[in-house]
Design a protein around this nucleic acid. Structure first.
Lengths: 215, 215
DNA sequence: GTCTTGATTGAGTGCTCACTCAGGTTTACA
DNA sequence: TGTAAACCTGAGTGAGCACTCAATCAAGAC
């Protein structure tokens, strides 16, 4: 009897706020960030989400699929954000800088999810031909294209000097990826250097390649 | 009887080439690269190394310590290499470029070990106060210092324009870290772009920061 | 009211695997 | 040759954990 009342209470709580599936994902994300994917038992996720362990496996095929969903959602949020960030600027260079800034702010705002990605990126799911691998590749490709777009725009409006578009897009992504990694790995907090990072890129993008060894 | 002969044979093989400990580390490194740390059972490592499973735990406290040793050895090799790479160049800018090149060549040459590092970097050992964490921090710090050294030299001999040394060192390491990651993650091989990457950095390091928005 | 469909539960199961340990072998050295 | 120390063995163990399943519950269709 009491259990039933309690269950009803919980049920309304959930109905009002979010459904079980969402609750499970949120709990998983939080725990993965705290302890890492491998060190988080599904029983613990269930406990924090306020559901039975079996419920997890009703909504998700296996534990990997939880990580899958978390990672994909994060990528989607990133892509949406970067798209709006680069829509307004009036030239290509500015768009690139807005994209860089967006990344730098994004990893602060979503720091715990980003930590999951940095620490527990699901490599094993990448090599095999799987829905996950396909979904993820699409999104990685999309991000690359968005950078390429900015750079091409910059070439056309003259705000960016002649460079290899493809290579430069990869370089910019490398810089951001690596910065993110160092930031989350570093035992001591990195100094504030985001402006400096943007300037570093701007100098490179706005200088034409003439062989000036020593000034 | 036959077993004894066989054992003797194996033993001589090992004595001639390398000791057991080394054999175990080599086997572990190879398997971690092939399948990942978590997906490699110690029994498998023992088999490939041609020793009993117990022998692993005679030489190493636990499985983590294997990864520990592999990672630390890799860092040491990297540090030694970069030290010699930056010793000869005649100015700071050149030293930076040599350091960048060294990294790019190093990750090709030691690709399977680097893959282990990229994929299975042992986060959990970082946060706790452990010998591993201390050893690793020392080495990360050392690498940072080497970059700082090059940049300072460049500032003094005038080959590098005024920039924040600390920030720039982190930016360069970020770029390399991220490039390494993308290279090993990318489902399709990256285009050849190492020269372009070096030029990207050179342009940034040799351009003084004046506000030239559009040329 | 009853049938169907889908959600939920949580105790139970089976598997994997890191690590142990008791007993054997080899080496170093007196 | 004796002895201690170090090295090596591999079957065994126990813990952890992802996942299952049979039973219960809820809600909408008719």
């Amino acid at each position: 009897m009491l259990t039933q009342v309690y269950n009803l209470f919980i049920y309304f709580l959930l109905e009002l706020s979010m459904d079980r599936k969402k609750a499970i994902l949120d709990a998983a994300a939080a725990l993965f960030a705290e302890r890492g994917f491998a060190a988080t038992p599904t029983a613990e996720i269930a406990r924090r989400a306020g559901v039975a362990e079996g419920t997890i496996f009703h909504h998700f095929k296996n534990k990997d699929e939880l990580l899958f969903n978390i990672v994909i959602d994060l990528f989607d949020a990133f892509i949406e954000g970067i798209k709006t960030a680069i829509a307004t600027p009036r030239n290509g260079l500015d768009a690139v800088e807005k994209a860089l800034w967006f990344h730098l702010l994004f990893i602060e705002k979503k720091s715990s999810l980003v930590l999951v990605l940095v620490r527990d990126f699901p490599f094993k799911l990448l090599n095999v031909e799987s829905p996950f691998s396909r979904e993820l590749k699409t999104r990685a490709q999309r991000i690359h294209e968005l950078f390429v777009e900015c750079l091409e725009r910059g070439r056309q409006d003259g705000s960016i000097c002649p460079v290899s578009i493809q290579a430069t897009a990869i370089i910019l992504r490398s810089l951001l990826t690596g910065y993110t990694r160092l930031k989350f790995l570093s035992p001591v907090p990195l100094p504030e250097m985001r402006e400096e990072l943007i300037r570093f890129c701007r100098r490179s993008l706005t200088t034409s390649t003439t062989n000036h060894e020593q000034p």
